[in-house]
């Protein structure tokens, strides 16, 4: 997890295009300036970052299902529930599932756990559009490689 770059997902453990599910890991860093303010003496991951981590997990799933032809952007967060504190150094396992594929949008559900303990969940809606800039596509390809996006799920030119 590189909080300063908003790169929250470290690795993809499983991507099932047929089932439209993904499981990823996100390692919360031991140290970050974020924890100095949130909160002094009681550092915890902000709920907005946990929501973003669930959104990025869903985003990788959608990229895979859409064969990297379109880029998803978070549009709506529903039923976001922060069920327990997430502390520095903890390892998040995040699962996401596509609930609906509409025309130009998709809806996912996501859950994040530490060990077996459910820490947060949300229903997320994304708009998706063709990549607005080639540089973004290059960047996402590089990120996909970095986090172990399955090669067989990557489009080959």
């Amino acid at each position: 997890m590189q909080l300063e770059y908003f790169q929250l997902i470290d690795r993809i453990l499983d991507l099932n295009i047929g089932e439209k599910t993904i499981t990823v890991e996100a390692q919360v860093p031991e140290h970050s300036t974020i924890f100095e303010g949130h909160f002094p003496g009681f550092p915890i991951m902000p709920g907005v970052l946990l929501t973003e981590a669930m959104a990025q997990s869903s985003g990788w799933l959608l990229l895979g299902v859409m064969k990297f032809e379109r880029m998803p952007f978070l549009a709506m967060v529903k039923e976001a529930k922060m069920r327990g504190f997430v502390s520095p150094g903890q390892l998040l396992t995040i699962e996401a599932k596509i609930e609906h594929e509409g025309s130009g949008f998709a809806v996912t559900s996501a859950k994040a756990r530490v060990g077996s303990e459910l820490k947060c969940s949300a229903d997320l809606t994304f708009r998706h559009i063709p990549f607005p800039d080639p540089a973004l596509r290059v960047f996402m390809d590089a990120m996909a490689h970095k986090i172990g996006f399955p090669q067989q799920a990557m489009p080959h030119d």
Partner: peptide, 25 residues
Amino acid sequence: SLDFLDIAFAIDKAFGIKMPLEKWT
């Protein structure tokens, strides 16, 4: 447009269809 995404989701599910919003737009 954001509220209409919600409506489209509900209509798609209620009728078992995929409204071609992008084509219409």
